[in-house]
Amino acid sequence: MRGVFEVRWHGRGGQGLVTASRILAVAAFNEGFVGVQSIPWIGAERRGAQIEAYNRISHAPVLLHSQVYEPDAVVVVDPSILSGNENGVIRGLKRDGFLVINTARLNITPLLRAPEGCSVYVVDATSICLELDLQVAGLEVLAMPMLGAFANATGLVSLKSLEKAIASSFEAGAVKKNIAAVIKAYELTRKVHLKPEQYVPPVPPSRPARIPEIRHWTDLPPVPVSTPSKGSIGKTGEWRTHRPVIDKEKCSKCLFCWMYCPEAAINVDDSGFPEIDYDYCKGCEVCFNECPRKAISMVIEEK
């Protein structure tokens, strides 16, 4: 390998991306790379929201401190973020890069887009986490098995280096489980070949403008003020892994779900039934737990 190898992780808050990026840096260092860097992305989003993390790996000390724009590898920890965001995931990914994806028991391969010349690898990291009970506060730590998938795909770090890194990063009790997840994922990772139309020209590295209505400093007022709107952070329905579904047969219209919803994402329709606003429902499951008639069920999101 020549120069600096750059990695971008995609996932959601709470899935262990930051930890995985740290462990990858330690593992690469164990492997003999003197230049390693782990970069968490610090944003406003909370558990469940899309986040990114980065790594740089090099045989020489890493002097770059800016963000990663043109990664050599992209690791997608949570496949649910792919939907509608295919270009966001592969933005800047190099032509001869690696795309490593958690397929989570779902057939998402048709959704994938990859730059021409890119190698695509998949593994079902979600099942591995569920099988090994690798969870923190109710969320699967999907990024851990993805370390194994990354190692398999790129050959940049060995399992031995990863094991050593994990052993030095966790309490004794958690080491075994995490190592098991990494090994298992390493073994189950497969290279896939996409259909020719799924290979696209490289996508420019820049993110789309977050505030398209402001283009230049002359558009700004003297003081930044914000105006009320639903979705002040976007469509938070995307954070959901499970969706609450109301059974109107069982519903007594008691409106406990409406009362207890932390998101104000439950409305009441004209006939008095609660109605979930799936654009914004984050899928916290409070309504599911509070419904006295058990009229709400949680259904896995098929994205």
């Binding site: 944003g43 977050r210 505030i211 402001i214 400093w217 700004l220 930044p224 003020v225 009320p228």
Partner: peptide, 24 residues
């Protein structure tokens, strides 16, 4: 009703608001 002080990301407009202060 407006909110004052909302978080801005590094790629947003904080830098430009400071430029406006300097111009003022």
């Amino acid at each position: 009703p407006i909110t004052h002080g909302n978080l801005q990301m590094p790629e947003d407009w904080f830098y430009e608001f400071r430029y406006l202060m300097h111009r003022a």
